[in-house]
Design a protein around this nucleic acid. Structure first.
Length: 774
DNA sequence: CCAACGGAGATTTTT
DNA sequence: TCTCCGTTGG
């Protein structure tokens, strides 16, 4: 055999062994050469492992597996060294050999030439860390970023090309909404008919599809409502630019625009990124698809990882077709399916498979596991949401005692955030420690947004939206009229509000009654800008909080204000930490960090507490024991989703995501009766339950298990136990005083007919009606 | 300019 | 039912 043939054989053998800890498909995905690669990674199939190892493989050895590569000066000695290693592998199984990086005489791909994109900071950080574990800190030179962070990097460098300056700020959805409100007012549209929130979402979807205001205007010509929408969109974009601000969608959008506008910039990045990897590809929208397509168009080494069955963000603009049609969009695509699941029991996995099998729009695949059969899926029918919570908590308490589990082993998942309230209250009764994820974010708090608005104005004086937010916060006597005068003047002079403030004295502007307050405010801002130069970031923010009077406006005796003060301190802590870990960074970078890193990552991670969160937030996570609560028609699937097959399929995927979060045990509960927004609903059990084979399910109603629940905690005070008698006088919160004219027994509850003094007889359930005895 | 009232509205949210 | 806004009246 020729020496180079032997080399290739040994090379590939050693590489296979080097990744011998992976299963065959995972290994194939790691070692597969360049060109478009679609890795369909089912839930719990080890996709992060694959991505991380693929990156490490490229960096260590380069893309040499199954290639024609042989070293230039291949000698017998070199070959012998390889033979030795191969023999080592042959003799022992499971050997973990640390190979020298240049063992095959290659340099490997430089980390600089690799781009890895994720959706969340959490995923990006995890990937960074795990790659570093394998290749050391050379990974620092690699771009492992979220879509948004990667785009910001590009935009900061090239902002001028788009008519922005590099100190641009990023608007979050609140800022977007206030700007849109402004546009709606300016165009004189009816806010009832053009609700800012809806308009915002509409524009956001247009941006996802890379439609410019102009595109859209042409597209909808002749349709009144959409035409107005196009006008708002046009104005909105103008204002964003005037404010030197991008919204989240723009970050992607404008980067693509930049690439179209300036081919040489695109070319630079195209040539730079030899290998591109995209995580959670099923969640990409059209703009992100385009970005990735453009960037990979030169080297064509695009590897995407995702699971069409876990595409649950269609409503946010994610286009599942990106993953479904990947091989059509990228010719010569290699598809590798990771179908072995390392997470759940056979029962859980089988149930998940059965549910998802009802979807038409998906890639054929079927997860399997070597794991044991495991317990059946436990199903419980509760009478109402309180009893449901009670059941869940009782089970958890039992299992903690019986199986020595910790609260941290459990998660309760639900479709709607507001379902958490009842569960929380019940958890408190049971003294089970818990953490609620999602909902309100730290940086969304009013006091934090206020401080951030100050900082933004200082970093980017063009930011009228932020200036408007804080010009009278805390109250300094600049009301609507004064502000309107200011705005009018700014518009007339073609200046930003900030510019007017600064030029106030010099130009002898007359604002009217608020003149003095405005002047003082202008001086305050000037002073802030001055002291910023001589202070660290943290010192500066601290001074800002004091000098603006923000701190003084809060009363430490008031519990709400006390909380605010604590949050401001927390914010200062975050600033100081940021400074420490980014000594080079300034205010602009800090603000960017705030915008892109939404919550303090892994704040309480490792705390031994039960997890409460929506099914959406649970994607990517796993727990030994999972409860899915509120499995009812109208809740899950949500009432809004059942009209459209596409939406229903997304709900079903969400259900699939939920089921596959569970490692060992899965409990599903539903309530016969549920109070939603003040009205009582009698929902049917979810259709998704019918899709699971009954053999996999064990009903806990009336079984010994449900009777072993610890002493029943009463249903929310007197609810459900309230007895009313015929002829009694009662006070109803809405209908006023009335007399009970009939009481009908309804099992645990009773139905009351009440004749109100104001007229009319109405029927209520005793447990639910807001009634007081008088 | 501010606080108090009342009506509408209320999925899911990686950035 | 609860919360957020915009309006209103002082």
């Amino acid at each position: 055999m020729r020496i180079d043939e032997r080399f290739k054989e040994l090379r590939d053998y050693i590489l296979e062994k080097q990744y011998g800890h992976l299963n065959a498909q995972q290994r194939e995905a790691v070692l597969y050469g360049g060109g478009p690669l679609l890795i369909l990674a089912g839930a719990g199939s080890g996709k992060t492992t694959v991505m991380v190892n693929r990156i490490a493989y490229l960096i260590k050895f380069g893309d040499i597996y199954n290639s024609s590569y042989t070293p230039d000066n291949l000698t017998d000695e070199k070959l012998e060294a390889l033979e030795k290693i191969a023999n080592l592998y042959k003799k022992t199984q499971d050997i973990d050999l640390e190979l020298p990086d240049d063992i095959f005489g290659t340099k490997g791909v430089s980390p600089v030439n690799i781009l890895a994109i994720t959706f969340t900071n959490k995923a990006a950080n995890e990937m960074k860390e795990r790659v570093s574990e394998l290749v050391g800190n050379t990974a620092d030179h690699m771009w492992i970023n979220t879509f948004h962070a990667a785009c910001v990097k590009i935009l900061r460098r090239n902002a001028e090309e788009l008519g922005y300056t590099s100190n641009f700020v990023i608007y979050d959805s609140t800022d977007q909404e206030s700007l849109i409100k402004e546009c709606i007012k300016e165009i004189d549209l009816n806010e009832k008919y053009f609700r800012p929130r809806d308009v915002k979402n509409h524009i956001s979807r247009l941006k996802d599809e890379l439609k410019t205001p102009e595109d859209y205007r042409k597209e909808v010509a002749g349709q009144y409502r959409d035409e107005q929408m196009a006008r708002v969109y046009t104005l909105y974009q103008e204002k964003l630019k005037k404010n030197n601000a991008f919204d989240f969608d723009d970050l992607i959008n404008k980067t693509v625009e930049l690439f179209y506008l300036k081919p040489h910039i695109l070319e630079y990045y195209q040539k730079r990124f030899h290998y591109i990897l995209v995580d959670e590809y099923q969640d990409t929208n059209h703009a992100q698809y385009m970005l990735v397509k453009l960037l990979s168009d030169y080297h064509k080494n695009l590897c995407v990882v995702g699971d069409d069955d876990q595409s649950i963000y269609g409503w946010r603009g994610a286009d599942i077709r990106n993953i479904l049609d990947f091989e059509k969009d990228f010719p010569n695509t290699k598809i590798i399916k990771l179908e072995e699941n390392y997470r759940s029991t056979k029962t859980i996995l089988e149930a998940a498979n059965q549910v998802i099998d009802n979807n038409a729009y998906r890639k054929a695949k079927k997860l399997w596991t070597r794991k044991e059969e495991g317990d059946k899926i436990y199903l419980y029918e509760a009478s109402d949401e309180w009893e449901e919570a009670n059941f869940i908590c009782g089970q958890i308490q039992n299992m903690i005692l019986k199986y020595e589990l910790n609260p941290g082993d459990f998660a309760v998942l639900y479709r709607l955030n507001n379902q958490s309230r009842v569960i929380e209250e019940t958890l408190i009764k049971y003294s089970i420690p818990y953490r609620v994820y999602g909902g309100y974010r730290f940086y969304d708090r009013k006091e934090i947004k206020d401080i951030v608005a100050y900082l933004r104005v200082i970093a980017n004086p063009a930011d009228d939206v932020s200036l408007r937010r804080i010009i009278n916060v805390p109250k300094r006597g600049i009301g609507a009229v004064t502000l309107a005068n200011l705005e009018e003047l700014a518009a007339r002079k073609g200046e930003s509000l900030f510019g007017i403030l600064i030029d106030m004295e010099e130009e002898n502007y007359d604002i009217g009654r608020g003149q003095k307050s405005v002047q003082e405010f202008g001086m305050l801002v000037s002073r802030l800008i001055a002291i910023k130069e001589v202070m660290t970031l943290t010192e500066f923010i601290e001074s800002l909080v004091d000098m603006t009077g923000y701190r003084d406006a809060l009363n430490p005796e008031d519990p709400e204000d006390k909380e605010r003060l604590a949050n401001i301190d927390e914010f200062l802590k975050a600033a100081s930490e940021f400074e420490q870990s980014n000594p080079e960074a300034g205010l602009v970078e800090f603000l960017e960090n705030i915008s892109l890193i939404s919550d303090i990552d892994g704040l309480d991670e490792g705390q031994n507490a039960l997890t409460l969160m929506t099914l959406h937030s649970a994607k990517g996570l796993e727990f030994p024991v999972v409860f899915i609560a509120g499995m009812e028609e109208g809740i899950f699937p949500s009432a809004r989703s059942v009209e459209e097959e596409g939406k229903l399929e997304e709900e079903r995927r969400l259900c699939y995501v939920g089921i596959t979060r569970a490692q060992r045990q899965l409990f599903i509960t539903y309530a016969k009766m549920r109070n939603v927004y003040g009205t009582t609903l009698f929902n049917m059990p979810s259709r998704f339950l019918d899709e699971i084979d009954g053999n996999y399910v064990e009903s806990l109603n009336g079984s010994s298990m449900s009777r072993s629940i610890p002493s029943k905690v009463s249903n929310r005070g007197t609810k459900g136990k309230r007895e009313f008698t015929l002829g009694e006088k009662v006070m109803h919160k809405r209908f006023g005083i009335g007399t009970i004219v009939a009481v009908t027994d309804r099992g645990d509850d009773s139905e009351l007919s009440i004749a109100f003094d104001q007229g009319g007889i109405k029927k209520f359930l005793a447990s639910l009606a807001p009634l007081k005895r008088i």
